[in-house]
Design a protein around this nucleic acid. Structure first.
Length: 893
RNA sequence: GGGCGCUUAGCUCAGCGGGAGAGCACUACCUUCACACGGUAGGGGUCGUAGGUUCAAUCCCUACAGCGCCCACCA
């Protein structure tokens, strides 16, 4: 006997272990079934499950379970990401607490070397070993069913091998190169970050206007403005627009840089906007992206004035050396002022680049870094979407993709970190670079190059973490080996992810997949909404506003959370998760549980040989038909990634049709029907319930598996491996369905009219469909007289056949009159109700009549629309007639 | 500055060229033997504003207002 309510905690762990042990998650490359692949976006290996994960993995699991049931050889490839900078930061913080400061000793950063690189990396591996199973354990709690045996990690030997091969090949193809450019430098993390990791933050700052004296011209100044005064120490020019009349005479002359005393040219460059400020702009090639370009055009020096920690270095006047950039800013302003060269200060709101991980102000900084020629790789990736080989769902994300891909900049892939794939490049004593897959290869090349064995130093940097994830769709399948998995499961069917990593990840997988596999990595990219916090803000690790899905799972069960996320996953809108929503769907799970309990109590046992097409009773033929139709709708919804539609169809069918109507209809049959009727009804009830458990399984895997086990007494196999219910054409009886729809509508009408009756729903239904049962009668002694009269009138009505319309409408008419007369409800109240209903019907009629009379409607509207309106008008007219008659009779009585 | 999205019941949100929906909350009644995590009935919305297209607009178009997000080098 099932408990009164479902207790998820008691079954989830047991069922999950059983699934995993049964091998149900595993794909089978030897199978004859059609392969279906989803690549799991690898979560941070040392991370923990947040609501965004819960959403994306729920949708993926729902899809993969659905496809598995649809007969596909489904591979959901799991794994984790080493998440370079994020993980390294965590470990550094841990070490800092223990007063062990690592020193990466690069880019001139001073500091103590308490532990070296190898020691540090070993400690990160320790941390990975300690916390690395957290996320996968949490995924299991969610019910995720990937092929765990194939779990990969981006720093695995195989994947690292793929990374080296890709790097070397791209280098040899000229698509990876080393270059000295400005990068976004994080002075706190001591590394370059990519453009995508930069967050522009609106900051209230100032615009300082400085006067630069023109050389050889007494009391002549050029006034420039800046938001970062300290950068003036690195100025190597002032630019004005070539057409700017005000400065025409000054171009080619020089100004003397205050404080520094450097003589710098006034150049003409269209970058200077005559409309902005004074029209003259200071040029600091080493510390501003625009200025860098201007400097390049005019052959200006790029003077790097900062060290890696954002302090002024030895290129600036003595008194500034070693000062922090912000201290230097104040000092520069003060000194300019004291020199009488401060022309003004304005308040100014502007965007300042911040590191999205460190939160510090980033500095454009001149360094040597490795770059990928993204523009070249992007071309075929753009074309793949244009030609529809990869499709975005919803489609409008294609625009986002195009916009970025068409304006893509060189991708800076080197990071000054220790945790990650170390770049496979070695330098000779003269700085000559050897890129190779191994140290031996590099040594051999060097020997050839130098004509003798030469000591090499490996590039200390590691690759951007997204470099390895870009290879994920093929590296996890075994590339560069030609594995059977690679041949069978690539290209994958769909990538499910949030829009926030379209650039970081999706675009790069497209580029790498096409380049190395010659084919797109996925057919569909389903971009789902972001789960936001209550203020509508993006949840992120650095903001610390994460709502823990595990709390929700603990409180309501994994199924409730999963169903909620599916029900809210409408395309194109973000999810602001409300806990009440989860509670509502938890209640839904309980409803399903109790429907099963009802079946169990009534001896409805699963019969594997049951043939729904052989049913005779109308209710049974009806529910089977309804089920078949819904199963089709649900499958279509999931295939179209309309998870909310699928979830809502199930919700309404199970609660609104199966429980509210079917189970109520069969109560009298199970209580008092003939033996054959009862047997058929029990079998049908069990069968329909069983099918519903199938349809529900991708959304709520745990409770359905548990109920299935109970329904089939453990003889039905596991739901996770069961086939999706087929539409039983022979069992579909549209006439029965239509007839029952009519009955349902009729009873609803009676309910509405008779709302004051306050009799139980079951009894109301019983008295319409057949003679009320003995137990019901006993409980209904108070209302017996009226019910018996109704029952006599309705004696011809049989549940097993078509319900004679005349009979039931007679019940309606009688009920309208008898119950008030029998004193069950108040006559005056009933009159008022009838009047109100009549008015309502008249209102509807008026609206429809107006529409039918509107010019052109009958001529131009589709035939069926016109017909539908006429029918509705007739229905309302009939209803009004009936209600009016009842009102008259009630008044006369 | 460019681009995208949103504005529907008290709250959180679906939906959509021809009868305004769900969950929660609210009201009334119901110890009912599947389920009070329940049942029945009910209240509550001129679908942001103004125009336009159409026989018909919450839905399509335009403008406006408000909100949000993404991208961008404005000194």
């Amino acid at each position: 006997m099932l408990e009164k309510t479902y207790r998820p905690a008691e079954v989830e762990e047991r069922l999950y272990a059983a699934w995993e042990a049964s091998g149900a998650f595993a794909a089978d490359p030897r199978s004859t079934r059609v392969p279906y692949t989803i690549m799991m976006p690898p979560p941070n290996v040392t991370g923990s499950l947040h609501m965004g994960h819960a959403l994306t993995f729920t949708l993926q699991d729902t899809l993969i379970r659905f496809m598995r049931m649809r007969g596909k050889d489904a591979l959901w490839q799991p794994g984790t990401d080493h998440a370079g900078i994020a993980t390294q930061m965590v470990v550094e913080r841990q070490l800092a607490e223990k007063d062990i400061f690592p020193d990466r000793g690069q880019q001139g950063a001073p500091g103590q070397t308490l532990i070296g690189r190898d020691d540090f990396v070993a400690r990160v591996w320790d941390w990975k070993a300690e916390s690395g199973s957290t996320i996968t354990r949490q995924l299991r709690r969610l019910g995720a069913s990937p092929d765990w045996a194939r779990e990969r990690f981006t720093l695995d030997e195989g994947l690292s091998d793929a990374v080296r091969k890709v790097f070397v090949r791209l280098y040899r193809e000229g698509l990876i190169y080393r270059d000295q450019r400005l990068v976004n430098w994080d002075t706190k993390l001591q590394t370059a970050v990519s453009d995508l990791e930069v967050q522009q933050v609106e900051v209230k700052g100032h615009l300082w206007h400085f006067k630069y004296p023109v050389e050889g011209a007494e009391n002549t100044f050029v006034t420039v403005a800046t938001t970062r005064p300290e950068t003036m120490l690195g100025d190597t020019a002032v630019a004005v627009h070539p057409d700017d009349e005000r400065y025409r005479g000054l171009v080619g002359r020089h100004v003397v840089l205050p404080i520094v005393g450097r003589r710098i040219p006034i150049v003409a460059d269209p970058y200077a906007d005559p409309e902005t400020g004074t029209g003259a702009v200071k040029i600091t090639p080493a510390h501003d992206f625009n200025d860098f370009e201007v400097g390049r055009r005019h052959g200006l020096d790029a003077i790097n004035i900062l060290d890696s920690r954002g302090r002024l270095n030895d290129t600036v006047p003595e008194s500034y050396r070693g000062l922090d950039r912000f201290a230097a800013r104040d000092k520069v302003v003060a000194e300019i002022e004291s020199l009488g060269l401060l022309a003004g200060i304005e308040d100014h709101v502007h965007a300042v680049p911040h590191g999205d991980r460190s939160g510090t102000v980033l500095e454009p900084w001149l360094t040597d870094q490795w770059y990928v020629d993204a523009a070249t790789l992007a071309k075929p990736a753009i074309e793949a979407v244009e030609t529809g080989r990869t499709r975005f769902v919803p489609k409008h994300w294609e625009n986002t993709y195009y916009e970025w891909m068409r304006n893509i900049q060189p991708w800076c892939i080197s990071r000054q970190l220790w945790w990650g794939h170390q770049i496979p490049a070695w330098y000779g004593p003269d700085g000559h670079v050897f890129v190779a897959e191994s140290e031996e290869e590099a040594a051999a090349e060097a020997a050839k190059h130098y004509g003798r064995t030469t000591a090499l130093a490996r590039d200390a940097d590691v690759l951007d973490t997204w470099f390895s994830s870009a290879l994920w769709p093929f590296s996890t399948l075994g590339w560069p080996e030609k594995t059977e998995h690679l041949a069978r499961y690539y290209p994958t069917d769909v990538l499910v992810t949030g829009f926030d990593i379209i650039f970081f990840w999706v675009a790069r997988m497209m580029m790498m997949g096409i380049h190395f596999m010659g084919e797109v990595p996925f057919r569909d990219v389903y971009i789902h909404a972001l789960v936001r916090d209550e203020r509508g803000q993006k949840m992120s690790k650095s903001k610390g506003n994460i709502i823990d899905p595990l709390d929700i799972i603990g409180k309501y069960g994994a199924d409730a959370l999963r169903f909620t996320l599916c029900a809210l996953a409408a395309q194109g809108r973000d999810i602001k998760l409300a806990e009440a929503r989860v509670e509502g769907y938890r209640n839904f799970a309980t409803k399903l549980w109790n429907a099963s309990r009802f079946a169990e109590m009534n001896g409805c046992a699963w019969d594997p040989g049951f043939d729904p097409a052989a049913n005779r009773l109308q209710v049974n033929r009806w529910i089977v038909t309804e089920l078949a139709l819904r199963a089709e709708d649900i499958a279509r919804a999931v295939e179209d990634y309309k998870f909310n539609e699928g979830a809502n169809l199930l919700y309404h069918f199970i609660w609104g049709t199966f429980c509210d109507w079917y189970l109520e209809f069969i109560k009298p049959v199970l209580a008092e029907g003939g033996a054959a009727e009862q047997a058929e009804t029990r079998a049908t009830c069990a069968w329909v319930l069983g099918q519903l458990l199938h349809l529900m399984h991708p959304f709520m895997p745990f409770i359905t598996e548990e109920l299935w086990e109970g329904l089939t007494a453990g003889q039905g196999g596991r739901l996770i491996s069961a086939p999706w219910p087929e539409v039983q054409a022979a069992a579909c009886d549209r006439d029965a369905a239509a007839e029952m729809d009519w009955v349902v509508r009729l009873i609803s009408t009676i309910r509405t009219v008779r709302s004051e009756m306050n009799v139980p729903a079951a009894a109301k239904i019983s008295l319409v469909l057949k003679d009320a049962g003995a137990t019901t009668k006993a409980r209904m002694a108070k209302h017996m007289a009226a019910i018996e009269r109704l029952a006599r009138i309705d004696s011809a009505t049989e549940l097993s056949g078509a319900v004679p319309k005349g009979s039931v409408s007679a019940v309606l008419d009688e009920a309208t009159l008898i119950l008030p007369l029998a004193g069950i409800i108040d006559v005056a109240a009933e009159k008022a109700r009838l009047a109100k209903e009549i008015a309502k019907a008249e209102g509807e009629m008026g609206r429809i009549e107006k529409k039918l009379a509107s010019p052109g409607f009958v001529e131009k509207a589709p035939e069926e629309v016109v017909e539908e309106n006429r029918e509705r008008l007739a229905e309302y007219a009939a209803q009004k007639q009936k209600l009016s008659e009842a009102l008259v009779r009630l008044s006369q009585a």
